[in-house]
């Protein structure tokens, strides 16, 4: 499988402190810190983690909706971070995003047709009738009908709005789509419809997804490989089956154990990890998970673990695994 996207050393530090000119830059929110991963053409990489772990920031940096502090984002061999704004705008044809909130993601004053047509207008890929035909084709593609084109977003349910958002993302025939929690805000019975739709579109159009979510069940269902984030770092990344069956990182283990299963008393067990997620303003020294880790060792408090590859294709950043052999860093 060829790699469509390769991210290296991706970092985002937000300056915090109340905006005045005199007290700027007092503290840094280390939202994303030295993140590395690749996404193969046609695959789905799931990105999971709890709130504030930086997973959404990663997704938005890929499209440069948020500018990275440092790092490389290689898309089809080209480093997007170095592109001038004009050139980046042209690249956006190939990478799109689907948002979480089906209410906030559609301009309430535009008709569905205008919403879906906007990317086509911007890039002038089609004109007049052709553009309109394309809108109707896209509506049908996502399970809506032509008569929906003239309606406004408020006339639709959450699931239907998410379909409209997906149609907009597809308008320019992108190769890569960031799905930023696309089903988290939907009712359970609607979630499954949208997940199936995304899978069908991937199969038919050869799309590549970065699927960001906090629901481990959904991520497992849709992904080929899964990356787990904690406090701005990727702690583990591997093929779906291996990662769920034999999670290597204690955080991944705890996360999987914490999911309430729809089986009564299957697992009325004690919480695997205690305590709260520390602040990204002042992340713990050493391994960032050491404050909550059930297997914490003295070294974890001092030294940040390197990412190693204990099994082929299964990477983890944890002192439980031999630190000598660093993971082969793929050629830039």
């Amino acid at each position: 499988m060829t790699e469509l996207l390769r991210v290296a050393g991706l970092t985002k530090h937000f300056p915090v402190g109340q905006g005045g000119p005199l007290n700027r830059g007092k503290a840094m929110l280390r939202a994303v810190d030295d993140v590395n991963f690749g996404v193969g053409s046609g695959e789905t990489l799931g990105l999971v983690g709890e709130s504030g772990c930086g997973k959404s920031t990663v997704g938005r940096m890929l499209l440069r909706l948020i500018e990275p502090t440092t790092g490389r984002i290689e898309f089809e061999g080209e480093n997007l971070v170095e592109l001038a704004p004009e050139a980046m705008r042209a690249r956006r044809r190939h990478m799109q995003i689907v948002f979480q909130d089906p209410y906030g993601a559609l301009n309430p004053r535009m008709t569905v047709e205008d919403i879906i047509k906007e990317p086509i207008e911007i890039h002038r890929t089609l004109n007049g009738r052709d553009a309109r035909d394309r809108v109707l084709e896209l509506l049908e593609r996502v399970g809506l009908v032509a008569e929906h084109a003239r309606r406004y977003p408020h006339e639709f349910s959450g699931g239907q709005r998410q379909r409209i958002g997906i149609a907009r993302a597809l308008a320019l025939n992108p190769r890569f789509i960031v799905c930023d929690e696309p089903v988290s805000a939907l009712d359970v019975s609607i979630q499954a419809q949208i997940v199936n739709l995304l899978q069908d579109l991937q199969a038919d159009l050869g799309l590549t997804y970065l699927f960001i979510a906090h629901d481990l069940g959904v991520v497992k269902h849709i992904s080929d490989r899964v990356a787990v984030m904690y406090l701005g770092k990727i702690v583990e990344i591997g093929a779906k089956r291996a990662l769920y069956a034999e999670p290597l990182h204690p955080y991944t283990q705890a996360l999987i154990a914490a999911v309430p299963e729809a089986k009564p008393r299957a697992s009325r067990r004690k919480a695997a990890i205690t305590g709260e997620i520390p602040s990204a303003l002042n992340p713990p020294k050493g391994c960032r998970f050491h404050t909550r880790c059930p297997k914490v060792m003295p070294v974890c408090r001092e030294v940040e673990p390197r990412t190693t590859e204990p099994k082929p294709g299964h990477l983890v950043a944890c002192h439980l695994y031999p630190q000598e052999a660093p993971a082969p860093t793929p050629a830039a």
Partner: peptide, 26 residues
């Protein structure tokens, strides 16, 4: 901050278009 504005940026829209079509009417 609304996501539809982010979506327009992601679609490659320029400042003028974003202001005129998305921000001002709302």
């Amino acid at each position: 901050q609304m996501e539809y504005v982010q979506a327009a940026v992601a679609a490659g829209a320029g400042h003028w278009r974003i202001l005129r079509r998305h921000i001002l009417p709302n």
